[in-house]
Simulated scan of single mutants.
Amino acid sequence: MLRKLMRKLTINCILNQATRLIICVPILWTTQFVACVKNDRVPEIISALEDFDYEKALEDFNMEDCANAGLYPNIWDKDDEDLVDELIEEISDYIEGLRDFYKKVLEAGGHALITIY
């Protein structure tokens, strides 16, 4: 799921950063994406997740940027501060969960299977 933050961060930058963290070998790409992250890449992913200042990135979270990028689901036209707060919390939880997941993979010496459907 990460690219280095070189400009003012918007949700597009956050998504681009997160995408680069999933350093993987694609196995299947049809209506679903399936890939394997080999265990030799796990330390690099953990390092990138720990170096990524997602809290700073989320300071610039903007619903309009999400709408302009055509991100799914199409909820970005709502002018709802509570929704923004919920989304920021959800994104933060997912990033922290991803970091914890890869630490467990490292401890187990395993590989990770990534699916997007």
Score class of each variant (00 low, 15 high):
Leu83Thr: 10
His111Thr: 10
Asp100Cys: 05
Leu49His: 00
Met1Gly: 05
Asp51Tyr: 06
Ile88Leu: 02
Glu55His: 07
Ile88Tyr: 02
Arg99Asp: 05
Asp65Cys: 03
Gln32Arg: 15
Pro73Trp: 13
Asp65Gly: 02
Pro43Ile: 01
Ala108Gln: 14
Pro43Gly: 01
Ile114Asp: 00
Arg99Ser: 09
Asp93Gly: 14
Tyr94His: 11
Val84Met: 06
His111Glu: 14
Val25Ala: 09
Asp80Trp: 09
Ala112Phe: 05
Leu106Val: 00
Asp93Glu: 15
Asn62Val: 08
Lys38Gln: 08
Ile114Cys: 11
Cys24Lys: 09
Arg3Pro: 06
His111Trp: 12
Ile45Ser: 10
Val25His: 11
Leu106Ile: 00
Thr31Phe: 05
Leu5Ser: 07
Leu83His: 03
Leu71Ala: 04
Lys104Ala: 14
Thr30Trp: 04
Ala112Val: 09
Leu98Met: 11
Arg41Trp: 10
Lys78Thr: 12
Ile95Glu: 01
Phe61Pro: 01
Leu106Ser: 14
Glu55Tyr: 07
Tyr54Ala: 03
Lys8Trp: 00
Asp93Lys: 05
Ile45Met: 11
Asp65Thr: 03
Val42Ser: 04
Asn39Leu: 02
Thr19Leu: 09
Val37Gly: 08
Glu86Asn: 13
Val84Phe: 02
Asn16Leu: 12
Glu59Cys: 08
Leu98Trp: 06
Val37Ala: 04
Ala69Trp: 03
Ala69Pro: 02
Asp82Tyr: 12
Glu64Tyr: 07
Ile23His: 11
Arg20Ser: 15
Arg41Pro: 00
Leu98Pro: 01
Asp77Phe: 08
Val105Cys: 13
Arg3Met: 08
Leu58His: 01
Lys56Leu: 11
Ala67Ile: 00
Ser92Val: 03
Glu89Cys: 04
Ala67Ser: 05
Thr30Gln: 13
Tyr54Asn: 04
Asp82Met: 12
Arg20Thr: 11
Asn68Glu: 10
Ala18Cys: 05
Ile114Ser: 06
Asp82Val: 10
Phe52His: 06
Trp76Met: 03
Glu90Asp: 12
Leu58Cys: 00
Trp76Val: 00
Gly110Ser: 12
